[in-house]
Computed example of a mutant assay.
Amino acid sequence: MVTINEVAKAAGVSISTVSYALSGKRSISRATRERIDRAIRELGYTPNAGARMLAGARTNILALSAPLHADGHLPTHMRFVTEVVRAARERDYDVLLLARDDEVTGIRRVASTSLVDGVVAMGVTERDERVALVRSLGVAAAFIGVPGDSGGIACVDLDFAEAARMAVERLVADGHRTIGVIGHPHGYVDRQQTFMARFEDGLAAAAAEAGVRIVHEWAEVSRGAGARAADALLDAAEPPTAIIFHCNEPAVEEAERRVRERGLAVPQDLSLFAAAASYDPGRLEIPLSGITLPMEEMCTSAVEAALGLRDGVAQATTRILAPALVDRGSVAAVV
């Protein structure tokens, strides 16, 4: 393990100067700080977590680890970012956005230079590398999402399995036996994004319990993907009498337009349901019954958890939010 002595030697400064640079207790020249930062990066030095806590220096900056993938939906991504910024600003904090696909480099860099007081991470996967990293660095961190190994990690998320179960039960109650699902791009599944896995598990379990058939289509990130997914479902030999949307807003809007172009009335001919929507389903051209993602509560909770851990007044726990179903008249009984 690299020591502070090695950093000092590589930077050509004293150990105390490196300590001052890390803690912020004394001002040092820009040139000296740049030499120290360069030595830290090149050597891969990680400050001792206990030493950082003893230093007690605050930066009033939170890092937001928000990797954006090629198949990600930027408006949804930025809604999360905006809510984290809002929650941080209300607590007199600025936010440093870490948006590289490499999810660990940015966290390691800002932690090694004591640039931030904590980290909020989104876009969580089953085997998320950031979990082991924040543990090893001793960084105050909170995840918007629940990784597979969440022990000792602060997490907050919607109960996606319950959201899927509620969607299926609502449709089954009105006699629907074949239910279509238009989902996020399949890359979300390939990356093992945990919200997708939990939703799909809940969907399968609820369908098996009710004895109904689920038919999937995946709306990739391309113009017309929602319409194509709707056509694929409705042109099947046994078309669904209801469709659950678990995808981003443009795909839902395209699918709604295609349903109308095909001369189908909602909900008389086809029931539609929005599950864990990151948008307002009530503001669509066809307002949808469904469950909206409690984005503001999720982001606020994550910011509070990270700051609580930083201040030593909170424990690393997992908080799962209960879904709330709102009926807007887009679901009806099968005729």
Rank of each mutant, 00 (worst) to 15 (best):
V266M: 03
H246E: 00
R283E: 15
V252D: 11
P281K: 06
A277N: 03
L272I: 00
P240R: 03
F245T: 13
A236F: 12
E249M: 14
P287D: 13
D280M: 00
A255E: 07
R257A: 14
H246N: 12
L272S: 02
A277R: 09
L284D: 09
V266D: 07
V259C: 02
E285H: 06
V259T: 02
C247N: 13
A274W: 05
L270P: 00
D280W: 04
L288C: 09
V259R: 00
R283F: 05
C247Y: 05
P250I: 11
P240Q: 07
I244L: 13
H246P: 00
I244K: 08
E253G: 00
A242S: 04
P250T: 10
P239Y: 10
P250M: 13
H246R: 13
E261C: 03
E238H: 12
A242V: 00
I243T: 05
A265W: 08
R257T: 14
N248H: 15
A255D: 10
G263I: 03
E249C: 09
Q268Y: 12
P240V: 02
L284H: 10
H246F: 15
P239N: 07
I243A: 01
E256W: 01
E254P: 04
R257P: 00
P287I: 11
P281F: 13
G263W: 00
A276M: 07
F245P: 08
A277V: 01
A275C: 15
I286Y: 09
C247I: 14
P239Q: 08
Y279E: 03
